[in-house]
Design a protein around this nucleic acid. Structure first.
Length: 487
RNA sequence: GGUCUCGUGGCCGAGCGGCUAGGCACCGGUCUGCAAAACCGUUUACUCCGGUUCGAAUCCGGACGAGACCUCCA
């Protein structure tokens, strides 16, 4: 690790910030629960992926060699909370009258495209559940062998009661099983389960299931949580450094993952559990069931009913990083507009930085400005503080430009390189690329010359007509001492 | 109902015992033919009531309000 600051991470398991010490020096293994591809991920899903992408980038910045695994759920999850069975991938496929494979493939292509648009670094590996059925079966067999699961009528259930004799079920979510029991006792038909809190590791196939695999217990589907245990173990080992996901996965998904890992390999899979908070719309969690969601592509192409205009993906990303990953974030047009302005200010600062002229001496310490940014990264990946420190740096950039502050050639290069690293590599914000349209710029040069002539002749009517006309066409004229520019 | 989290200025959002967060908006200024843009400066705050403390937005207790999880969910 190249930073002077000690990296501190908030661990959901302990509820505290802890010094980060990787299992293997300079290496980090990180597993993040990815999307379920029976529909297109919405903006709330994207926030989680953006947050973990930022965390991934921070770790890389700090000099760690990171193995980042983010799974893709393409196997149907079966639930039977109230005796009602639901295969989400299967249902979507049936209604669309196409094979489930086709659905999953279609959404996967869209998801990959979204990752490019939102500038997410590709994970080291993106394993799919369907390609790891064998591994899942092997983990289940191990759990059975260890006595923490039982087979009933072609299904396999995790035996929470037996598990609790040796392990702490509820360590992550803070749930007590006897409390859970009081809550659920009245509701549900226990069915095949021996104990209400038991959960399915393998579920016997239903006649209408589209996805069915062979197993030692007959044809069926893997349970909802087993894929993550199988894939994280395969690619990162029985224990690794960081396990992340959305806050809503804490219980039961992550709790059950811990149980499965302890039940098969005897240890909690991850040393640090990290949970990203939700994206809210009007104070409520964005979710499919509430119907208050919009898609990441809709905000970019301006087709979301919530917003009056499109916002570049980089602006949306910037907006999200202005809040800490552990806080909820409310998305509104007003807030987005504020971020867009700030985003432009930062970008203009960066482009001005490239044009600064060096001096013989430096009037301030570059290291001090940069240190604040690095400290923010190390303090539980505090993106908003990082951004605030970059705005502080922008003030210095303008001061240098106005001759109020100076930097030597050497310091200026250092400053420039660091700023670009923080913005592009760490925040993952690509500077807005000006579309270099040769023909348009030729025309604009001419129009500006015409207007300049009118101005020199004090023909304000003509000059304002040109200015207003361009404004209507979405081109803004900027007059300054050094001449006129447009954007 | 149970478990938990949160309530910060016009908006979004950091901070989490003493030190300006930041962005946007507002206001003032510089610049300008007038604008716009840009830059500079700047006002406004910690839901309420108690307690601990020399000192609390920050810790403790209570009230009110909001949200999450307990069911697929990032």
């Amino acid at each position: 690790m190249k930073s002077d600051h000690q990296l501190v991470i908030y661990n959901s398991l302990s509820g505290k910030k802890e010094n980060f010490v990787p299992l293997h020096e300079d290496h980090v293994g990180m597993y993040v629960c990815g999307p379920t591809l029976y529909s297109e991920p919405h903006m709330g899903n994207m926030r989680t992926f953006i947050n973990f992408d930022f965390i991934y980038r921070c770790l890389l910045y700090l000099g760690y060699k990171v193995k980042y695994v983010r799974n893709i759920t393409d196997a149907g999850h079966i639930t039977n909370s109230a005796g009602q069975e639901l295969d989400s991938i299967g249902s979507a496929a049936r209604s669309a009258q196409v094979q489930s494979l086709e659905i999953v493939y279609t959404y996967n292509v869209k998801f990959q495209e979204l990752q490019r648009v939102y500038n997410l670094l590709p994970p080291s590996i993106e394993p799919t559940a369907t390609a790891h059925i064998q591994e899942q079966i092997e983990v289940i067999e191990q759990i059975i062998e260890n006595g923490f699961a039982y087979v009933v009528n072609g299904s396999v259930y995790f035996d929470v009661k037996t598990y609790m004799q040796q392990h702490n079920y509820g360590a992550l979510s803070g749930r007590k099983v006897d409390e859970l029991e009081q809550e659920t006792r009245t509701l549900n038909a226990q069915g095949e389960k021996r104990f209400f809190a038991d959960f399915a590791l393998w579920k016997k196939a239903n006649p209408e299931d589209m996805q069915v695999w062979r197993s030692p217990w007959g044809n069926g589907n893997p349970g909802w949580h087993i894929e993550c245990t199988a894939m994280s173990t395969k690619y990162l080992g029985k224990q690794f450094d960081i396990h992340g996901g959305g806050l809503d996965l804490k219980f039961p998904h992550h709790e059950d993952e811990i149980a499965q890992n302890c039940g098969s390999f005897g240890c909690n899979p991850a040393r640090y559990w990290m949970h990203a908070n939700m994206l809210n719309v009007n104070g409520q969690k964005m979710s499919k069931s509430l119907g208050n969601y919009f898609l990441p592509k809709e905000i970019v192409n301006g087709t979301s009913a919530l917003f009056t205009k499109p916002y570049p993906a980089a602006v949306v990303r910037f907006f999200m990083l202005q809040a800490h990953y552990r806080s909820t974030l409310d998305i509104t047009e007003e807030a987005l507009n504020a971020s867009e302005k700030g985003f432009e200010r930062l970008m203009e600062g960066l482009s001005l930085l490239e044009k600064l002229t060096p001096s013989n001496s430096s009037s301030f310490e570059v290291a001090k400005v940069l240190s604040a940014a690095e400290a923010a990264i190390c303090d539980d990946f505090n993106a908003p503080i990082l951004i605030a420190s970059l705005f502080d740096a922008v003030k210095y950039i303008h001061a240098i430009n106005e001759g109020k502050e100076q930097l030597t050639q050497e310091d200026l290069l250092w400053f420039t390189h660091a700023m670009n690293t923080f913005v592009q590599d760490v925040l993952g914000i690509e500077p807005s690329k000006k579309e270099e349209n040769q023909r348009l710029s030729g025309v604009m040069d001419m129009v500006i010359t015409l207007r300049q002539q009118a101005r020199e002749q004090k023909d304000w009517t003509a000059s304002d007509m040109i200015r207003d006309g361009l404004e209507k066409a979405g081109i803004q004229i900027k007059d300054s001492k050094d001449g006129t520019s447009w954007s």
